[in-house]
Amino acid sequence: MNPLLEVRHLSISFHTYRGLLEAVHDVSITVHPGETVGIVGESGCGKSVTSQAVMKLLPQGAAEYRTGEILWEGRDLLPLSESEMNGLRGRDMAMIFQDPMTSLNPVLTIGAQLCEGLALYQKLSKQEQRTRAAELLKAVGLTSPEKRLDQYPHQLSGGMRQRCLIAMALSCSPKLLFADEPTTALDVTTEAQVLDVLKKMQAELGMAVVLISHNLGVIAQMCRRIYVMYAGTVVEEGTAEDIFYRPAHPYTKGLLASLPDPSDREKVLTGIPGQAPDLFHMPKGCRFYRRCPQAMKACMEAEPPREEAGPGHHYTCWLAAAERRRGDGTH
């Protein structure tokens, strides 16, 4: 099956007052039609930048695509003009954002915002738009959808707003939905409901979802394949089983060790010492070596190679190479 989206060796820099800042370095991500892909990593690791880069939503002028290509159904998006991109946005790919409180326009009614998107790609009368908008709100589980259409965002709760945003994103049945920390601003009960809505809508529309989160629990529950990002790079990719049961990269192992396990109450939670590197002072070699319990001399000097841990399970680390060398030495 041909991939829907293929990001190849993408690097993105931002022009800032302190100079050029590389937020994403050599990231490759593949999404097939209908699948759910997770991107995990801590704050500032480049998850959101990557997703917004695909939709070319990064602030023009400030963000610069340094290398790589973004293939949408085989066609490179980088040379496309803003108006050509606008033809794809909403219809082919859509996005829901982290903060439902600020992501809706406060001065327009929910109905006005929903219908605006509907009117872009479908010829519908005002009445048809309203009916369709109400159907969408009902589909994402909002009660009394007709009433919601005439309400303003400030009259709805956070969970309701996120449902509205999902309805808006799905209004033109996109092939790919980016969900950028869709539940981070919500309480746990609402989080579960919103994730259920996402799952249900995905099944109905058969769309692919890229779920971005720092919450391993959410990712585990939703995704078939996972990318682990650290300091602007993908450090490990694999199926959910690979990542959770057979983690290969020391960073992924560290993340899992810092998760509480309800079945093992004796487990001692260990954090990852130190902090993610300052993007202005990126280490020359592996970006994780300063915090890595298994760091070696090689890690300091050069970027680690991409290793295969199993079919579809890759990680970038020097450990495997070192082991091979040691293995050679015994012969």
């Binding site: 939503l57 946005r89 219809r91 859509a94 600020t102 326009n105 915002q113 998107g117 872009l120």
Partner: peptide
């Protein structure tokens, strides 16, 4: 603001962004 990014992500054109979404605010 975030809601302008949301509108852009939905394919709303530049005039509508400026006039309908930003100006009133």
């Amino acid at each position: 603001q975030d809601y302008i990014r949301t509108a852009r992500s939905r394919g709303i054109g530049p005039w509508s962004l400026l006039y309908r979404h930003a100006l009133r605010n």
